[in-house]
Protein backbone atom coordinates (compact mmCIF):
# COMPACT_ATOMS: atom_id res chain seq x y z
CA UNK A 1 0.00 0.00 0.00
CA UNK A 2 1.33 3.42 -0.94
CA UNK A 3 2.07 5.71 1.99
CA UNK A 4 0.85 9.24 1.26
CA UNK A 5 3.58 11.86 1.39
CA UNK A 6 3.21 14.77 3.82
CA UNK A 7 2.72 17.08 0.82
CA UNK A 8 -0.18 14.96 -0.49
CA UNK A 9 -1.58 14.77 2.98
CA UNK A 10 -1.50 18.53 3.49
CA UNK A 11 -2.95 19.10 0.02
CA UNK A 12 -5.75 16.69 0.82
CA UNK A 13 -6.49 18.53 4.08
CA UNK A 14 -6.26 21.86 2.29
CA UNK A 15 -8.76 20.77 -0.37
CA UNK A 16 -11.06 19.17 2.16
CA UNK A 17 -11.13 22.19 4.45
CA UNK A 18 -11.76 24.43 1.48
CA UNK A 19 -14.77 22.32 0.49
CA UNK A 20 -15.98 22.46 4.10
CA UNK A 21 -15.58 26.25 4.06
CA UNK A 22 -17.81 26.41 0.96
CA UNK A 23 -20.46 24.32 2.69
CA UNK A 24 -20.24 26.44 5.84
CA UNK A 25 -20.49 29.63 3.81
CA UNK A 26 -23.48 28.34 1.88
CA UNK A 27 -25.37 27.22 4.98
CA UNK A 28 -24.59 30.37 7.00
CA UNK A 29 -25.51 32.67 4.12
CA UNK A 30 -28.77 30.85 3.50
CA UNK A 31 -29.62 31.07 7.20
CA UNK A 32 -28.71 34.75 7.32
CA UNK A 33 -30.76 35.59 4.24
CA UNK A 34 -33.80 33.77 5.61
CA UNK A 35 -33.60 35.04 9.15
CA UNK A 36 -32.41 38.61 8.63
CA UNK A 37 -32.41 39.94 5.07
CA UNK A 38 -35.98 38.92 4.19
CA UNK A 39 -37.16 40.54 7.41
CA UNK A 40 -35.94 44.01 6.45
CA UNK A 41 -38.95 46.32 6.69
CA UNK A 42 -40.72 47.17 3.43
CA UNK A 43 -37.85 45.70 1.48
CA UNK A 44 -37.73 43.90 -1.85
CA UNK A 45 -36.37 40.72 -0.16
CA UNK A 46 -39.40 40.72 2.13
CA UNK A 47 -41.72 40.96 -0.86
CA UNK A 48 -39.87 38.20 -2.74
CA UNK A 49 -39.98 35.99 0.34
CA UNK A 50 -43.73 36.58 0.50
CA UNK A 51 -44.10 35.65 -3.17
CA UNK A 52 -42.16 32.42 -2.57
CA UNK A 53 -43.75 31.37 0.71
CA UNK A 54 -47.36 32.55 0.81
CA UNK A 55 -50.05 30.11 -0.22
CA UNK A 56 -52.99 32.52 -0.01
CA UNK A 57 -55.15 32.82 -3.09
CA UNK A 58 -56.60 36.26 -2.39
CA UNK A 59 -54.22 38.99 -3.44
CA UNK A 60 -53.84 42.76 -3.06
CA UNK A 61 -51.50 44.67 -5.35
CA UNK A 62 -50.44 48.26 -5.86
CA UNK A 63 -48.16 50.83 -4.26
CA UNK A 64 -47.68 52.01 -0.68
CA UNK A 65 -51.24 53.36 -0.41
CA UNK A 66 -52.53 49.84 -0.95
CA UNK A 67 -49.81 48.38 1.27
CA UNK A 68 -50.84 50.62 4.17
CA UNK A 69 -54.57 50.35 3.55
CA UNK A 70 -54.48 46.54 3.59
CA UNK A 71 -51.69 46.04 6.11
CA UNK A 72 -53.68 44.43 8.89
CA UNK A 73 -55.84 41.84 7.15
CA UNK A 74 -54.97 38.15 7.24
CA UNK A 75 -57.10 36.38 4.62
CA UNK A 76 -55.14 37.73 1.68
CA UNK A 77 -51.53 38.30 0.67
CA UNK A 78 -50.56 41.94 0.47
CA UNK A 79 -48.08 42.27 -2.41
CA UNK A 80 -48.37 46.04 -2.62
CA UNK A 81 -45.15 47.96 -1.97
CA UNK A 82 -43.94 51.54 -1.79
CA UNK A 83 -43.44 53.12 -5.18
CA UNK A 84 -44.17 49.96 -7.11
CA UNK A 85 -44.84 51.01 -10.70
CA UNK A 86 -47.19 48.97 -12.86
CA UNK A 87 -44.52 46.91 -14.69
CA UNK A 88 -43.18 45.87 -11.29
CA UNK A 89 -46.71 45.04 -10.11
CA UNK A 90 -47.15 42.86 -13.19
CA UNK A 91 -43.90 40.98 -12.56
CA UNK A 92 -44.74 40.38 -8.90
CA UNK A 93 -48.24 39.19 -9.71
CA UNK A 94 -47.16 36.86 -12.48
CA UNK A 95 -44.47 35.34 -10.29
CA UNK A 96 -46.84 34.93 -7.38
CA UNK A 97 -49.52 33.30 -9.49
CA UNK A 98 -47.31 31.20 -11.73
CA UNK A 99 -48.23 28.03 -9.85
CA UNK A 100 -51.46 29.19 -8.16
CA UNK A 101 -55.03 29.70 -9.21
CA UNK A 102 -56.11 33.02 -7.75
CA UNK A 103 -59.51 33.64 -6.20
CA UNK A 104 -60.05 37.29 -5.30
CA UNK A 105 -57.63 39.93 -6.49
CA UNK A 106 -57.77 43.61 -5.60
CA UNK A 107 -55.78 45.93 -7.79
CA UNK A 108 -55.11 49.58 -7.16
CA UNK A 109 -56.81 52.22 -9.29
CA UNK A 110 -55.12 55.49 -8.31
CA UNK A 111 -54.14 58.38 -10.59
CA UNK A 112 -50.57 58.47 -9.26
CA UNK A 113 -49.87 55.15 -10.94
CA UNK A 114 -49.36 57.30 -14.03
CA UNK A 115 -47.42 60.12 -12.34
CA UNK A 116 -44.04 60.99 -13.86
CA UNK A 117 -41.92 59.61 -10.95
CA UNK A 118 -43.75 56.28 -11.26
CA UNK A 119 -43.32 56.20 -15.02
CA UNK A 120 -39.58 56.73 -14.58
CA UNK A 121 -39.25 53.89 -12.08
CA UNK A 122 -40.28 51.29 -14.64
CA UNK A 123 -39.62 47.76 -13.34
CA UNK A 124 -37.43 48.72 -10.33
CA UNK A 125 -35.08 45.89 -11.43
CA UNK A 126 -37.82 43.34 -10.67
CA UNK A 127 -37.21 41.91 -14.14
CA UNK A 128 -33.81 40.76 -12.83
CA UNK A 129 -35.31 39.09 -9.77
CA UNK A 130 -37.48 36.01 -9.11
CA UNK A 131 -34.85 33.90 -10.84
CA UNK A 132 -35.43 30.83 -8.69
CA UNK A 133 -39.22 30.92 -8.83
CA UNK A 134 -39.54 27.85 -11.00
CA UNK A 135 -37.40 25.68 -8.72
CA UNK A 136 -39.23 23.33 -6.36
CA UNK A 137 -36.75 24.16 -3.58
CA UNK A 138 -35.75 27.80 -3.44
CA UNK A 139 -32.21 28.49 -2.27
CA UNK A 140 -32.26 32.22 -1.46
CA UNK A 141 -28.52 32.44 -2.12
CA UNK A 142 -29.33 32.32 -5.81
CA UNK A 143 -32.06 34.95 -5.67
CA UNK A 144 -30.55 38.23 -6.77
CA UNK A 145 -33.48 40.18 -5.41
CA UNK A 146 -32.52 38.98 -1.94
CA UNK A 147 -28.72 38.74 -2.02
CA UNK A 148 -28.30 42.23 -3.49
CA UNK A 149 -29.74 43.64 -0.28
CA UNK A 150 -27.02 42.11 1.88
CA UNK A 151 -25.19 45.37 1.41
CA UNK A 152 -28.03 47.31 3.05
CA UNK A 153 -27.07 45.72 6.35
CA UNK A 154 -24.61 48.05 7.97
CA UNK A 155 -24.11 46.93 11.57
CA UNK A 156 -24.37 44.07 14.04
CA UNK A 157 -26.93 46.18 15.94
CA UNK A 158 -29.13 46.31 12.87
CA UNK A 159 -28.79 42.55 12.38
CA UNK A 160 -29.79 41.83 15.96
CA UNK A 161 -32.71 44.26 15.78
CA UNK A 162 -34.06 42.69 12.60
CA UNK A 163 -33.37 39.15 13.78
CA UNK A 164 -35.15 39.67 17.09
CA UNK A 165 -38.08 41.69 15.76
CA UNK A 166 -41.25 39.78 16.55
CA UNK A 167 -43.94 41.99 15.03
CA UNK A 168 -44.13 44.07 11.92
CA UNK A 169 -42.92 47.59 12.73
CA UNK A 170 -45.28 48.98 10.10
CA UNK A 171 -48.25 47.82 12.18
CA UNK A 172 -47.20 50.25 14.89
CA UNK A 173 -47.49 53.31 12.65
CA UNK A 174 -50.12 55.89 13.68
CA UNK A 175 -51.34 59.38 13.00
CA UNK A 176 -49.56 60.99 15.96
CA UNK A 177 -46.76 62.56 13.96
CA UNK A 178 -49.09 63.73 11.22
CA UNK A 179 -51.51 65.36 13.66
CA UNK A 180 -48.68 67.04 15.53
CA UNK A 181 -48.06 69.18 12.48
CA UNK A 182 -49.86 72.51 12.21
CA UNK A 183 -52.80 72.72 9.83
CA UNK A 184 -50.74 74.88 7.50
CA UNK A 185 -47.87 72.42 7.46
CA UNK A 186 -50.25 69.58 6.63
CA UNK A 187 -51.81 71.63 3.84
CA UNK A 188 -48.40 72.42 2.37
CA UNK A 189 -47.23 68.83 2.50
CA UNK A 190 -50.47 67.62 0.99
CA UNK A 191 -50.26 70.08 -1.87
CA UNK A 192 -46.69 69.06 -2.51
CA UNK A 193 -47.69 65.37 -2.57
CA UNK A 194 -50.61 66.06 -4.90
CA UNK A 195 -48.30 67.86 -7.32
CA UNK A 196 -45.90 64.90 -7.07
CA UNK A 197 -48.82 62.61 -7.94
CA UNK A 198 -50.17 64.50 -10.96
CA UNK A 199 -50.76 61.85 -13.60
CA UNK A 200 -49.49 62.17 -17.15
CA UNK A 201 -51.85 60.23 -19.40
CA UNK A 202 -50.67 61.18 -22.88
CA UNK A 203 -46.95 60.43 -22.88
CA UNK A 204 -45.73 57.32 -24.65
CA UNK A 205 -44.47 55.90 -21.36
CA UNK A 206 -47.88 56.45 -19.76
CA UNK A 207 -49.61 54.79 -22.69
CA UNK A 208 -47.28 51.83 -22.20
CA UNK A 209 -48.18 51.75 -18.51
CA UNK A 210 -51.89 51.87 -19.35
CA UNK A 211 -51.36 48.89 -21.62
CA UNK A 212 -49.59 47.11 -18.76
CA UNK A 213 -52.60 47.81 -16.53
CA UNK A 214 -54.94 46.24 -19.07
CA UNK A 215 -52.55 43.31 -19.47
CA UNK A 216 -52.61 42.70 -15.73
CA UNK A 217 -56.43 42.70 -15.71
CA UNK A 218 -56.56 40.30 -18.67
CA UNK A 219 -53.97 38.04 -17.07
CA UNK A 220 -55.96 37.86 -13.86
CA UNK A 221 -59.20 37.18 -15.68
CA UNK A 222 -57.53 34.50 -17.77
CA UNK A 223 -56.41 32.86 -14.54
CA UNK A 224 -60.03 32.79 -13.40
CA UNK A 225 -59.65 35.42 -10.68
CA UNK A 226 -62.49 37.63 -9.41
CA UNK A 227 -60.96 41.05 -9.88
CA UNK A 228 -61.83 44.31 -8.18
CA UNK A 229 -60.30 47.76 -8.61
CA UNK A 230 -59.87 49.98 -5.56
CA UNK A 231 -58.91 53.58 -5.11
CA UNK A 232 -57.36 53.75 -1.62
CA UNK A 233 -58.57 56.59 0.61
CA UNK A 234 -56.76 59.88 1.04
CA UNK A 235 -57.38 62.87 3.32
CA UNK A 236 -60.03 65.48 2.59
CA UNK A 237 -57.31 68.01 1.91
CA UNK A 238 -55.70 65.69 -0.63
CA UNK A 239 -59.04 65.27 -2.38
CA UNK A 240 -59.61 69.02 -2.34
CA UNK A 241 -56.26 69.77 -3.97
CA UNK A 242 -56.37 66.89 -6.44
CA UNK A 243 -59.79 68.02 -7.64
CA UNK A 244 -58.13 71.22 -8.85
CA UNK A 245 -56.18 69.28 -11.46
CA UNK A 246 -57.93 68.00 -14.54
CA UNK A 247 -55.30 65.25 -14.93
CA UNK A 248 -56.61 63.42 -11.86
CA UNK A 249 -60.10 63.30 -13.43
CA UNK A 250 -58.68 62.06 -16.73
CA UNK A 251 -56.82 59.30 -14.92
CA UNK A 252 -59.92 58.29 -12.98
CA UNK A 253 -61.93 58.18 -16.18
CA UNK A 254 -59.35 55.69 -17.50
CA UNK A 255 -60.10 53.43 -14.53
CA UNK A 256 -63.86 53.93 -15.03
CA UNK A 257 -63.50 52.83 -18.64
CA UNK A 258 -61.48 49.76 -17.66
CA UNK A 259 -64.07 48.91 -15.05
CA UNK A 260 -66.85 49.08 -17.62
CA UNK A 261 -64.95 47.36 -20.40
CA UNK A 262 -64.08 44.33 -18.27
CA UNK A 263 -67.17 44.47 -16.06
CA UNK A 264 -65.06 44.87 -12.94
CA UNK A 265 -66.18 46.77 -9.85
CA UNK A 266 -64.30 49.99 -9.11
CA UNK A 267 -64.50 50.88 -5.42
CA UNK A 268 -63.76 54.45 -4.47
CA UNK A 269 -63.50 56.20 -1.13
CA UNK A 270 -67.15 57.25 -1.15
CA UNK A 271 -68.34 53.67 -1.68
CA UNK A 272 -66.98 52.57 1.68
CA UNK A 273 -69.07 53.17 4.71
CA UNK A 274 -66.22 54.48 6.82
CA UNK A 275 -65.35 58.03 7.79
CA UNK A 276 -61.81 59.12 6.97
CA UNK A 277 -60.79 62.01 9.24
CA UNK A 278 -57.10 63.01 9.44
CA UNK A 279 -56.77 60.91 12.58
CA UNK A 280 -56.94 57.64 10.58
CA UNK A 281 -54.02 58.60 8.35
CA UNK A 282 -50.32 58.46 9.03
CA UNK A 283 -49.91 61.24 6.46
CA UNK A 284 -51.91 62.82 3.65
CA UNK A 285 -52.50 59.64 1.64
CA UNK A 286 -51.66 56.58 3.74
CA UNK A 287 -54.15 54.96 6.07
CA UNK A 288 -53.05 54.06 9.59
CA UNK A 289 -53.06 50.35 10.56
CA UNK A 290 -55.72 51.04 13.17
CA UNK A 291 -58.36 51.31 10.46
CA UNK A 292 -56.85 48.89 7.97
CA UNK A 293 -58.70 45.80 9.18
CA UNK A 294 -62.06 47.56 9.02
CA UNK A 295 -61.22 49.10 5.66
CA UNK A 296 -60.03 45.88 4.05
CA UNK A 297 -63.02 43.95 5.24
CA UNK A 298 -65.37 46.67 3.91
CA UNK A 299 -63.56 46.62 0.58
CA UNK A 300 -63.82 42.85 0.23
CA UNK A 301 -67.51 43.15 1.12
CA UNK A 302 -68.10 45.89 -1.44
CA UNK A 303 -66.04 44.12 -4.10
CA UNK A 304 -67.18 40.55 -3.75
CA UNK A 305 -70.43 40.87 -1.79
CA UNK A 306 -68.88 38.93 1.10
Amino acid sequence: MAIPSSSTDSSKKYSLFFVISIIVFTLCTEFFLRSVVVKLERSTPKLIDLVYTSKLKNVVVGDSQMYRAFIAGTNYVNLARRGNPLPAVEIVLKNYLHNKKPEKVIIQASPQLFATPQLKRNTQRYDMYFNINTLPIKPYMFERGITEFLSSIKSIKQILKVYNSKSDEDLKANSEKWLSLSLQEREERTLSRVIHHIPEMNSSESIRFQAVYLRIIEFLLSKGASVCMVTPPVTETYLKYSNRYEQFKTAMSFFDEVSQAYNIKLIKQQHIDIKFPDSVFINQDHLAPIVSKQFSSSVFKACFNE
Partner: peptide
Protein backbone atom coordinates in the same frame (compact mmCIF):
# COMPACT_ATOMS: atom_id res chain seq x y z
CA UNK B 1 2.29 28.89 -2.04
CA UNK B 2 2.12 25.95 0.31
CA UNK B 3 -0.99 23.95 1.11
CA UNK B 4 -0.89 25.00 4.77
CA UNK B 5 -3.29 26.64 7.25
CA UNK B 6 -2.15 30.18 6.58
CA UNK B 7 -2.72 29.88 2.85
CA UNK B 8 -6.01 28.15 3.43
CA UNK B 9 -7.14 30.98 5.72
CA UNK B 10 -6.13 33.64 3.20
CA UNK B 11 -7.82 31.80 0.32
CA UNK B 12 -11.03 31.27 2.28
CA UNK B 13 -11.10 34.99 3.14
CA UNK B 14 -10.56 35.99 -0.51
CA UNK B 15 -13.17 33.47 -1.59
CA UNK B 16 -15.76 34.67 0.92
CA UNK B 17 -15.15 38.28 -0.02
CA UNK B 18 -15.48 37.44 -3.73
CA UNK B 19 -18.76 35.59 -3.12
CA UNK B 20 -20.06 38.53 -1.08
CA UNK B 21 -19.20 40.88 -3.94
CA UNK B 22 -20.95 38.60 -6.45
CA UNK B 23 -24.04 38.33 -4.27
CA UNK B 24 -24.36 42.05 -3.65
CA UNK B 25 -23.26 43.43 -7.01
CA UNK B 26 -24.36 40.63 -9.28
Amino acid sequence: WQPNQLWLFVMVCLFYYSLYEIMTNG
